[in-house]
Simulated assay, not measured.
Amino acid sequence: MTRLLESSRPVAPGPSVVPACDGTTRPRLAVVGFGNALRGDRGAGLYVLEALDQAGFGSHVALNHIVGDYRTLISCLYDADAAVIVQAAEACGRPGDVHALDLPRFRTLAAMDHRVPSQPRALAEALTWIEVGHRLPRKLLILFIEPAPTCDGQGPGPSGPVRRGVRRAVDLAANFLERNGADRPAGHVPDRLYAVPWLGIRF
């Protein structure tokens, strides 16, 4: 079962906005997907980005792919009012499980991870440095998709459980974005099947 917890912690500076077609302003939104498409389930973050792009969100939602260097995260979150970070990571669940965390809950999880190296701790450290510079979004959702142990480094394409997890993560990310000001084209129906054409993958 997935739990969704939002962070409402204030942060300086004030919100930044982008102009909409009707002359109003909208918050800046970002999604950052971590993952290597050539490492099986470890490409989950990229698959979520591809699906969100196909879901029809407007151009004011910045979709950013990072292979694995957390130091580049600051440029993706710069001036964003709300953001989603998604990647494949073990968090004591079953393959395909999706863990939806706000920042305090994520930091608790990271502090309890004693593996070396630790993806959660590395991400938590990067977010702390961004927070020190007052560039952390006011609302942040972190999605971890549990990978299958046997589908790491097996080439492009996620395992069956992670395919289902990716679709769940897409739904959670889309709902979060819509609650924070994103919109989709009128009448758009969510796709029943997403694809990564350049990899020949469907999920």
Rank of each mutant, 00 (worst) to 15 (best):
T2V: 12
T2S: 15
L5F: 12
L5I: 14
S7N: 11
S7K: 06
P10L: 12
V11E: 15
V11A: 12
A12Y: 10
P13L: 10
G14A: 14
P19E: 14
G23F: 04
T24Q: 14
T25L: 14
R26F: 04
A30Q: 04
G35W: 00
G40S: 06
R42W: 10
L46F: 14
L46E: 12
V48E: 00
V48P: 00
L49G: 01
E50Q: 13
E50G: 06
D53H: 09
D53Y: 09
D53L: 10
D53C: 11
F57L: 10
G58Y: 07
G58T: 15
D69W: 07
I74Q: 12
I74Y: 08
D81I: 02
A83R: 02
I85H: 01
A88P: 01
E90S: 10
G93W: 01
P95D: 04
G96T: 05
V98F: 00
V98N: 00
V98E: 00
A100T: 04
A100M: 06
P104N: 08
T108K: 07
L109V: 08
L109Y: 07
A111N: 12
V116R: 06
P117R: 10
S118L: 06
R121V: 06
A122T: 07
L123Q: 03
T128L: 12
W129V: 13
R135I: 03
R138W: 08
K139N: 12
F144P: 01
F144T: 04
E146D: 08
P147F: 03
P147W: 00
P149Q: 12
C151F: 08
D152C: 11
P158N: 04
P158V: 01
S159K: 00
G160T: 10
G160C: 09
V162I: 06
G165N: 01
A169R: 00
V170N: 02
N175A: 08
N175Y: 05
N175D: 12
G181L: 04
G181K: 02
D183S: 13
D183A: 09
A186F: 09
G187R: 10
G187I: 09
D191T: 11
R192E: 15
L193E: 15
A195N: 05
P197C: 14
L199T: 05
R202Y: 07
F203N: 02
